[in-house]
Design a protein around this nucleic acid. Structure first.
Lengths: 327, 327
DNA sequence: CTGAAAGCGCTTACAG
DNA sequence: CTGAAAGCGCTTACAG
């Protein structure tokens, strides 16, 4: 049963008949194998152009060759964070003639399942993992995964060993969270609230970790809350007996809500506020933030992936993305 | 060359050896073909479970069978709109044992190219088109597309005929935009500004169309502006000599920015403001909106797609999603 | 109800 | 430099 009963799709065999050149040679032209004479190469290229031949992914894949498709798994497709990273990855892939195909996980335990499925399909040259939840590292890495690169996370020291030695693209969260806190401190802040989001992942740990180190080292007053990305609700729910000098949020999304709350209470000029990521919102709503070059994370991830796929084994194992504090 | 030099992946042939049952029969069990005895079916199912056999997509695809993968193309992956629709689609697909693979277009002319590529791969059972830009309808539909369902758009009357007769899931934009305008009118609004976004697509036309019909019919004062989704900037750029009674925005994203501007100028209680979509932001920032059940759009789209894929030809050709005005 | 065989579209050693 | 052949993993008429 053919799936498309419409016009027959042009296979390499048909093209071979049409041109009188063997499919082996045509295949070599398509895959840019060097051992083809200039003359036949040209002839084939013209025919490909003329008839609009496009190789079938399934055929390629079955023959064990590269497909030019790379997968991407993201837990946060609804957040601006993932969307930007995906955008950067997509652009970079396209510029290399490849395609990104994304799959969104619905919850933390879903994520690993998705990786398992994608790997089983044996159809991707590689997979980019965006901000995987911590818990995937507790289980064994699925078998038969293609090349993997992890963005915005890296296997914890206690991770299952099957996850080690993967390329990672991470963000220098600690360094820049601390830098921001130092500036707040210099401007007189001595008491803090920290709002985490709801997910357990690398960025969350790193940012909160930096906060905690800072306030404990300086012996400052602080509290924290977590459970949602709605800053407005988190603020409302919190019974604050005494207002802090500053509120530090895991990301800009939370900070937006908090800002709205402060504005309503007329506190927006009394309490310092910071988010993280550098969303457009952070400009409109005027709070401090740390700008994360999200597009670049995706781009770098794809670059590393291609290096592995193409066997450049001297590639960096870890990329650390530098950020910029905006007060 | 095998792509994964690690542990050999288990093929149907190997499973046949392992169980002593022919691969034909195993295949029949996997595809749920009825002509298999209860006894062998059970035996095969146990073996599949035991050895963890998962069919290769490429194999299936080459043999002309269904793959259980449906593609999704979206122009707006960075917007909350698309993210929600994708989320609904993903959930529905998963509940039917299928997978959604998304690809994001970068600009309007990109969109069609993506559809062309996805179709050529011959690997998807169907493709969901989310809010395609108007201009794709000017060109011919690519050949060999699998089943298609269009969400948040439908071919214009003047579209190339190759686009006709596709299933569509659309939103009753006109009806509810008008309802909202009527309520504003009843509460005394007589002059309006309308902010479009930057894209030429179905929703944009419908919503602005409803607005225009309304103000022209009632002979009200109005102006409009377009070019970006940043409402704050659009407001700042606009030289308003006289403040309007109400500002109507294409979506909540724009309305958020406008709200921020009004708040800053202390105008937020003087001018009525509305967005569209029912983002969480519309609650936090307090403006009127029309709630669009975005998850349901994606869900319905996937349902229609499966009906076509499975050959239920009595399926509806058009789904119209009803909305809810929130003042 | 079950199996052997052909075929889907590719790639790549192998032989020339 | 080029081609014939084997093989990748599946499905499905066909024959029994």
């Amino acid at each position: 049963m053919k799936k498309n009963s419409g016009k027959e799709t042009l296979s390499i065999i048909r093209l071979a008949e049409l041109t009188g050149i063997s499919k082996s040679t045509i295949s070599r032209v398509v895959t840019k194998h060097p051992s083809v004479s200039e003359k036949t190469r040209e002839k084939v290229e013209k025919a490909i152009e003329k008839y609009g031949y496009v190789p079938s992914i399934s055929g390629r894949s079955l023959a064990g060759a590269k497909t030019g498709i790379i997968g991407l798994i993201s837990p946060y497709i609804a957040s601006g964070y993932a969307a930007e990273v995906i955008s950067g990855a997509t652009a970079e892939a396209r510029s290399q003639g490849a395609h990104i195909l994304c799959s969104a996980s619905h919850n933390e335990s879903d994520y690993l399942e998705l990786l398992r499925d994608m790997s089983r399909w044996r159809m991707m040259d590689g997979i980019l993992l965006i901000a995987p939840p911590d818990l995937i590292y507790k289980e064994k890495r699925p078998e038969n995964t293609p090349q993997l690169v992890i963005c915005s996370s890296k296997p914890a020291p206690k991770a299952d060993t099957s996850w080690k030695e993967l390329d990672t693209v991470t963000v220098a969260n600690r360094k820049y969270q601390t830098e921001l806190l130092e500036k707040f401190y210099e401007s007189g802040c001595r008491s803090f609230i920290y709002f985490s989001g709801d997910d357990q992942n690398y960025d969350a740990h790193e940012r909160f970790g930096a906060f905690k180190s800072f306030v404990e080292e300086k012996k400052l007053k602080w509290t924290s809350a977590r459970g949602s990305y709605n800053g407005y609700e988190m603020m409302s729910a919190m019974k604050v007996e005494k207002l802090p000098d500053a509120i530090i949020c895991f990301n800009d999304q939370i900070a937006c809500g908090v800002y709205q709350y402060l504005k309503e209470k007329g506190l927006d000029n009394k309490i310092k506020l910071s988010g993280f990521d550098g969303d457009p919102s952070s400009e409109t709503y005027k709070f401090s933030t740390v700008e994360v070059p999200l597009l670049q994370i995706g781009k770098t991830g794809v670059q590393r992936l291609f290096e592995r796929i193409n066997g450049y084994n001297e590639a960096k194992r870890e990329d650390i993305i530098e950020l910029k504090v905006r007060i």
